[in-house]
Design a protein around this nucleic acid. Sequence first.
DNA 1: CAGTGGTCTAGACCACTAT
DNA 2: TAGTGGTCTAGACCACTGG
Lengths: 236, 236
Amino acid sequence: MLKYQKIARELEKYIEDNAMVRGDKLPILDDLMKEFEVSKSTITKALEILEVKGTIYQVRGSGIFVRGHNRKGYINLLSNQGFRQSLKDFEVSSELLEMAVTMPTKEAATNLSIDMDEEVYYVKRLRRIQGQRLCVEESYFKKSIVTYLNEQIVSESIFDYITEALNVNIGFSDIFFHVGKLNKKEAGYLGLKQDDPALYKESIYHLVNGEAFDFSRIVYSYQQSQFYIQANNYLP
Amino acid sequence: MLKYQKIARELEKYIEDNAMVRGDKLPILDDLMKEFEVSKSTITKALEILEVKGTIYQVRGSGIFVRGHNRKGYINLLSNQGFRQSLKDFEVSSELLEMAVTMPTKEAATNLSIDMDEEVYYVKRLRRIQGQRLCVEESYFKKSIVTYLNEQIVSESIFDYITEALNVNIGFSDIFFHVGKLNKKEAGYLGLKQDDPALYKESIYHLVNGEAFDFSRIVYSYQQSQFYIQANNYLP
DNA sequence: CAGTGGTCTAGACCACTAT
DNA sequence: TAGTGGTCTAGACCACTGG
């Protein structure tokens, strides 16, 4: 593991362990350099990661402070490692509805930039949060990248498996969403009524080399879904 | 202006001017260093900004490539400079519904971390996109930071004014959102029916020193609002 | 193996904050 | 004005890609 990654993780742990909250001050740069026995740039890089993630903010001439927010029950929209990170305090479960090796739909093929005769894993799951139905997710994984899936894997975190067992490096993702009305089938899955509001989210995940490997479409129940994002303002 | 900011902007312009699309290759690091006559780290910093913004992605051993996406009509959820950046191809207008110097609501006071007797500017606007009603926005600006507003400013981009004329440096923002059903009043503003779906978005904007200065609550019409985010995956 | 991006260092100097 | 974070440099060495 890289030095700056390790430092970033340890600082996150430090914040967690000391139950630090918004506005609390972290040690100054000089002390962090001495503590971790690295150069200033390496500390800076670690802090930058935490800044981008929304964990801290730095104020020139003043110090390094904990960010975070104080609303409970919100899901981090950008946390793509399943829901593990943002909902670690919640009970999240997955019910497998369907799984198959198949050809992609036209929509999936377009979003994955593949031909319609290239095989994909299709996975459909109902996800619950603390027993309540949260969303229905349909995913298409390129079989050339995600070479194997089974019921066991799919009922846990697919992304953990992909990154750890298959050693796939995820680079970036494009997320699109809009609000709409549930159709009858969707409403059935979520235990709601037809025409009830819903959030529709489509994500395209890419490898570090830019190749798309996963297209997913999620319909969130309007009752359980509250999201947050922590943004930074670059380039004034 | 800082060197790396200038370089980042010029590279954005280069991509734009050459109508580059996803997958197109930019000059290699070495050439960029020579072209801009700066050190490797400075180029790296500029590229990092573009990477975080979702403009490019870098592949070790291969090159620097244009990212971007190809869906038209989507709003960048993280673009907080009004809608200028992401919707520059669209006609966006604001109709002022209400403006006053007043005391905050309890909700606004909480989110801004101020007392209920501290003055704020309250601004309520209806925003249109290509003539269609897009959203209703209510904002509370701390008067101690945003010292003056008028109808002219408010009908254009408040954020442009704040950053440029008032010289306020925006640091970061927390964004929360959920889906719900319109009430009668909201539906009236948006030209929709009661109980139609809507996206509710709350944002808290902070200065670089972490002080909250703007709390806003936006209700988006489900018909006009499609959003996107370009995310990066840090720390596997 | 050559090309290309990533990590890390040591240090100079700059810009903002708080007192 | 001392303290603290930000910018920038020059260079060594590492890791991945692709012919």
